[in-house]
Amino acid sequence: MTMRSILVAFIAMLIATHAHAALTVTDDTGAQVTLPGPARRVVSLAPHVTELLFAAGGGARIVGTVSYSDYPKAAQSIPRVGDNKALDLERIVALHPDLIVVWRHGNAARQMDRLAALGIPLYYSEPTHLDDIAASIDKLGVLLGTEDTARAASTAFTRDIAQLRAKYARLAPVRVFYQVWDDPLMTLNRDNVFSEVIGVCGGVNVFAAQTPRVPTISTEAVLAANPEAIVTATPGATKPDRALPALDRWKQWTSITAVARGNLFGIDGDVINRPTPRIAIGAAELCRDLDIARGRR
């Protein structure tokens, strides 16, 4: 055998070894997830997971997902295997997935235990910071073997957030109350992606120190906090003539600065409630709204 043929055989061996090398990442619980090769059949068990998989370049490999996985448009045609309350475990198994991406706080723990017992690799997704979104895309890209696509998406997202932070974060702070739900009255503490978005825009989450992550609060607590802006999720962005029924309760409390100055804002829930690259769109909307609040001083 000539030196050239030996070199060719060695290179071929390296390529073959690389092609079959195990892929390992750490999920959002700190557990290692290892696959023998790129995932080809993926089940997504949360709407935000579906978006992350598409961003990472793996949309065409999703063989099953859950209700409300509606973005991008191609996700709407993926077979459903349940919702945030219950999963069809038999159907999931019948899809023969080589990776299941689950939502740690959104999927029933008992059903997750049953899935884990089947030996199918599980990746738990629970981004709690903006950097986690970019990291999640990159990690899913590793498991899918689509690192270049994933890195392009994560880099673009990181750039968009950095530009907003540079433009708004050092402006005069605006005290913000984010209303998750109106009955019972609920908000977010600091351990949430959207709370960090408030900071990106130069805002201050008035209930950042509360517990748990989605605390129930009282009307009196909001009155005492006296936010300069009140924000909630809506089916669409705030328009000058758009009514915000979820915030109507506050109009009687004219002593609240946000009410007195008309700083009641609604932002499309899909772009602020899901920890995906689209939260950069929601962040841009919030930043504009808080700048309006500054202009009303």
Rank of each mutant, 00 (worst) to 15 (best):
T234F: 10
T155L: 00
P235C: 01
P212S: 03
S136G: 10
H129P: 07
R190I: 15
G236I: 06
T211M: 10
P235I: 09
L140N: 07
D131V: 12
P184Y: 14
R213T: 02
M186A: 13
A156E: 04
P184D: 14
D191G: 15
R170H: 15
G236M: 05
Q179E: 08
N189S: 08
Q179I: 07
T149C: 00
I137V: 11
S154A: 06
T234V: 04
A209V: 12
A233R: 04
T234M: 12
A166I: 08
L171A: 15
E220V: 06
A166K: 07
P215W: 07
C201A: 15
V174Q: 09
L185H: 14
A134H: 05
D148N: 01
P173N: 14
D241E: 04
I217C: 08
A135H: 11
V142G: 05
S218V: 13
R175F: 08
I161K: 06
R159W: 00
T211L: 06
A209N: 15
D131N: 09
R159I: 08
A224S: 14
S218F: 08
I133L: 00
R151S: 03
P235K: 12
I137C: 02
Q163Y: 04
A208P: 11
A237P: 01
L171M: 15
K239S: 03
V197G: 04
A153G: 06
P215S: 03
D148Q: 10
V204E: 09
A153F: 01
V176P: 06
V204T: 11
G236R: 07
A156H: 09
G199N: 08
R190G: 13
M186Q: 06
G236N: 00
S154R: 00
V193Q: 04
A229D: 14
A150T: 00
T216E: 12
I137K: 00
D182V: 05
V231W: 15
D138F: 01
R165V: 01
R151Y: 08
E228V: 12
P215C: 04
